[in-house]
Nucleic acid binder design. Structure first.
Lengths: 230, 230
DNA sequence: AAAAAGAATTATGAATTCAGAATTCATGTC
DNA sequence: GACATGAATTCTGAATTCATAATTCTTTTT
């Protein structure tokens, strides 16, 4: 919700170039275009974005605070790669945060928000039935975002986004075996049900367990396939 | 201005001036020297720190990512003040995070770490018995830090630090009525006991409840008399 | 031929400079 | 006398410039 008094979409407000660069760079990292461990050459990015080094360096400082890149004193910056250990560390944190989000959402969500989550959950099952993996991931993300938003806790949302960003690329690595995929859909339906029942404790427990199951899925997918011993 | 000849020192690694400035500025904010809502004048800080505007602005971008200051497009930066609503939002997050820290610490802490926590808990009671408020706060902080460290989860520690930083100044506002103070000490003793018993679930519940009780204390102290800062 | 040392090139760290916007003060008009 | 408009000053935003450190390539010596 924007400031209602802002009648016109005044393009007069300048979004601060360094912030724009930070968003663009964050996008490149989250999209996976910049692989983990890759060195950042300032010159390359300044030419790519068409800005000078100053806003780029400010943007890199921002992303380093977010944990997306690592700054090495006089040797530049590298995209921080997420190791298996990092995933094992981050997912319990995400589980705790999303559990809290679920509990607060159960208490605070509007009926509209609950209806939206229920609808998304139906669409999630549709995507699963149709075997549409990209759409499934998209809807899954939308559900989690909706729950976070329904928690009405900006600090929780920001904190979650910061942690989720660090493991974002692992999302695509969650290669769902059909059995676990099915289970994930069922878990989401239980979560939606608990939310509608305004059962904070149940929602919290279900969401937390759901995230931990996701960790198992991601870790399992890791141990199997692509052997990239980095 | 100081002698810049520190380049001749045995400083093999240079900690990046912008990071140093960020740490110093973070300290000023956390110490309360820069009050919430206060405007940051770059010129003033550059003169204070003896650096140019470039590293200072990079540092400010870092702190804005941490949520400690708010950047207003062409109007500079202001210290983000924590409202009562922010506290009410942040403490459940801290409760969830510390609960997780307790659970993981119960599983992973070394005997030495548990002994240290037990010793600190004893000192906490001593500080309470002696009515030494500053020492109590210090030991309390040390205990929570020790539990976080014992969780062996760097991401959890970083996330907690980020959220705790945003409500740091509220720490001093927790004016403990003696009854609640007594209760807090007892809670800490229960937490230490649960940790020694390696009871993850109990530790998690106790720590989480402890943090929520702290929220009540802080909010209560706010409504009463927020008169004397310090 | 291989390894080490030194020089050159490249990239990063930081300050200065330049441009643009906002706020404040002064002046003029109603 | 008060309010509005314009100009000046101050502050932020961004690029350029300068310095320093690291890496790489070349040459020399073993």
């Amino acid at each position: 919700m924007e400031d209602g008094s802002d009648t016109r979409r005044t393009m007069i407000s300048r979004p601060a170039l360094a912030v724009e660069v930070a968003n663009a760079l964050r996008g490149l990292i989250l999209e996976g275009e910049l692989a983990g461990g890759e060195k950042i050459r300032e010159k390359e990015l300044t030419e790519r974005f068409g800005v000078s080094r100053t806003p780029l360096r400010e943007a890199m400082k921002m992303l380093s605070s977010e944990g997306l890149i690592d700054l090495i004193p006089n040797r530049g910056a590298v995209i921080s790669q997420t190791s298996a250990a990092d995933l094992a560390d981050a997912f319990p944190v995400l589980a705790a945060l999303e559990g809290l989000a679920g509990a607060q959402a159960a208490a605070r969500a509007t009926e509209d928000e609950l209806a939206t989550i229920a609808r998304l959950t139906d669409e999630l099952r549709d995507a699963f039935s149709g075997g549409e993996r990209p759409r499934y991931f998209e809807i899954n993300q939308a559900i989690h975002d909706a729950i976070l938003a329904a928690s009405r806790n900006p600090i929780l949302q920001r904190t979650h986004a910061a942690v989720a960003g660090q493991v974002h690329r692992a999302r695509y690595q969650a290669n769902l075996a059909s059995a676990r995929w099915q289970q994930a859909v069922s878990e989401h339906e239980e979560i939606s049900k608990a939310l509608h029942a305004r059962d904070a404790a149940a929602t919290q427990a279900l969401l937390s367990a759901h995230m931990m199951a996701k960790l198992s899925s991601v870790m399992g997918g890791r141990s199997e396939g692509d052997s990239a011993p980095r």
